[in-house]
């Protein structure tokens, strides 16, 4: 055991590593169960707030702006097409846990006839430098037999991992800013 009095002590000798792993597992709330079943069936299930009419994808079980609870009765199927409301291109650095090596897009998608964006979506099918706000996109679904709910979580917003790999351009003309102003984040 080295001591500070030793001449040969190097910085690493003075560091005690203590890595901790904690495992968490949590049942999906009913609204996320229904959203996940929708994904397996190739559908996005959202919910319309009975008070303000905003459409959330997925249903969170409540409208945070009106502070009202929502239920299965408020749910509806929404189209898997939308518009890039905002985006950034991330160049990955090699931090612990980072699996990406190439630049990728992190986009907020406003699905048609909804009022909340799905954040953190990848855009494929065009070079990253051509991604822009207003771009019309549609979900790229895994084949039904390959879909799973592995990546879906009870926390946060839309977790599409396991069913939708990315969004890709539809080829339709861009939408004007009016179509997504106020929904950038």
């Amino acid at each position: 055991m080295p001591t500070v009095a030793d001449d040969n002590v190097v910085a690493e000798d003075l560091v005690m590593e203590q890595k901790v792993t904690l495992h968490y597992s949590e049942p999906l709330p009913p609204n996320f169960v229904r959203f996940g079943e929708g994904l397996l069936a190739g559908k996005f299930i959202g919910a319309r707030c009975p008070s303000c009419g905003r459409v959330y994808v997925p249903d969170r079980g409540y409208c945070p702006l009106c502070a009202v609870m929502m239920s299965a009765a408020d749910e509806l199927e929404v189209d898997d097409k939308g518009v890039v409301a905002s985006y950034t291109v991330i160049t990955p650095v090699n931090y612990y846990g980072q699996t990406k090596t190439e630049p990728f897009v992190f986009a907020s998608i406003l699905l048609d006839d909804t009022t909340t964006v799905m954040r953190g979506q990848d855009i494929t099918g065009i070079p990253t430098e051509q991604v822009h706000a207003g771009l019309r996109v549609a979900a790229v679904w895994l084949p039904p037999e390959e879909r799973s709910l592995e990546g879906i979580s009870a926390r946060g917003g839309a977790s599409l991992e396991g069913s939708v790999t990315s969004f890709a351009p539809t080829g339709e003309p861009d939408l004007s800013e009016d179509a997504y102003r106020g929904y950038e984040f």
Binding site: L28, P29, G61, A67, M69, A154, R155
Partner: peptide
């Protein structure tokens, strides 16, 4: 012992 509701949903109920 194991709530299906999320933490936010539990809070909603308590605050309501």
């Amino acid at each position: 012992r194991r709530a299906q509701a999320s933490e936010v949903q539990l809070l909603f109920e308590a605050i309501d």
